[in-house]
């Protein structure tokens, strides 16, 4: 079906002269206007390559950092079943990170460079992961609201014009729906338990609802890069369109939980056929994304520690591979 995606795959050139840049740009424009896909070895504008490298690698970093708030709860999950589920979910997040790094690499930046950008604090990741998971109910709210917002954002990305990104998103979206349902079920169990448990669920929803809506990014008028991303068929819907879609889906789901969403301005608008919702706290968003959230420092410290504590494993594996290769070469030479 799909050709291998590594961009450094050797190519056999069947002509001595390359096409000139303008012809290449025309071909790229044609692919985009036909809503076709761009593949790794195609010519693409530098801006397209840069935008995608940044977006896909930030997305990968988010998956990797996103393991932390949930991994903190593996040992404290209330039953063996919940521990097993949570471990599977955290493992999925690692997998999603790796799919995305693979896709990002096809754009020409090596994996270790991308990883180093995260470790050096030069690359951003989704600011939602700078909030702590304070109670078990937060694990439910993260699954339902955070993964729910991620799905809403990611389903249209399955049709992104860059082939490897779209293919990675298809795989990810399939797996995310388990994440959202298990989160909703955690909240359902709590909201149908004791009054204290129900309150715990409500508190978690109150904490995560606003930040989850901010995951779609700033309002359209403050999102200057969106236009270009949409022209390139990377992004299919604007931030506000996706946010609206998400709010409309969440209201009945919250009702089914017997919980409320923390927004006094939330109400059905007959004329628009959508729910109206209140203003979000964009100052908080800016402050968290620029490093002043409750857990930014902790998340980065943990990531760096995990990387350096794992160094001996990487070194041992590489050394073993080197020795085996030398051993085999000796046998062949004998």
């Amino acid at each position: 079906m799909n050709a291998p995606q590594a961009d450094h795959l050797k190519a056999v050139s069947d002509a001595a002269l390359g096409e000139d840049e303008q012809a290449a740009q025309n071909y790229f424009d044609q692919l985009i206007s036909e809503d076709s896909r761009v593949e790794p070895r195609d010519w693409m504008p530098e801006g397209y390559r840069k935008t995608l490298t940044r977006q896909v690698s930030q997305h990968a970093h988010s998956e990797i950092i996103g393991m932390q708030p949930e991994a903190n709860w593996i040992t404290r999950a209330p039953s063996l079943k919940r521990k097993a589920i949570l471990m599977a979910k955290v493992q999925d997040e690692a997998g999603h990170g790796l799919y995305l790094y693979s896709a990002a690499e096809t754009l020409g930046t090596p994996r270790d460079v991308l990883n180093q950008q995260l470790l050096d604090g030069k690359a951003k990741y989704s600011s939602i992961f700078n909030y702590p998971a304070r109670t078990w109910a937060d694990i439910g709210a993260i699954g339902w609201l955070v993964d729910g917002a991620a799905i809403c954002n990611q389903v249209p990305l399955c049709r992104a014009s860059y082939g490897p990104y779209g293919r990675a998103m298809v795989r990810i979206c399939k797996e995310e729906s388990f994440h959202q349902r298990q989160g909703w079920e955690i909240l359902y169990e709590l909201s149908h338990g004791t009054p204290e448990q129900k309150q715990m669920a409500q508190d978690a929803v109150n904490r995560f609802y606003g930040p989850a809506l901010q995951m779609f990014g700033p309002p359209d008028e403050d999102s200057p890069n969106s236009k270009q991303s949409m022209a390139w068929n990377i992004k299919r819907f604007s931030n506000d369109e996706l946010r609206q879609r998400f709010v409309d889906m969440m209201v009945p789901q919250a009702e089914a939980l017997g919980l409320t969403l923390p927004d006094p301005d939330l109400k059905w608008n007959e004329e628009r056929g959508h729910y109206d919702y209140g203003k979000l706290d964009w100052n908080e968003f800016k402050s968290v994304i620029s490093g002043h959230g409750p857990c930014n420092v902790q998340r980065m410290q943990r990531r760096r520690a995990a990387h350096s504590e794992g160094a001996w494993v990487r070194e041992a594996a590489a050394e073993y591979a080197r020795k085996m290769e030398a051993h085999n070469a000796e046998l062949i030479g004998a």
Binding site: A3, P4, A11, V12, A24, R41, D42
Partner: peptide, 8 residues
Amino acid sequence: ILSSDPDH
């Protein structure tokens, strides 16, 4: 892996 050249 050897691949054909998309430019041509």
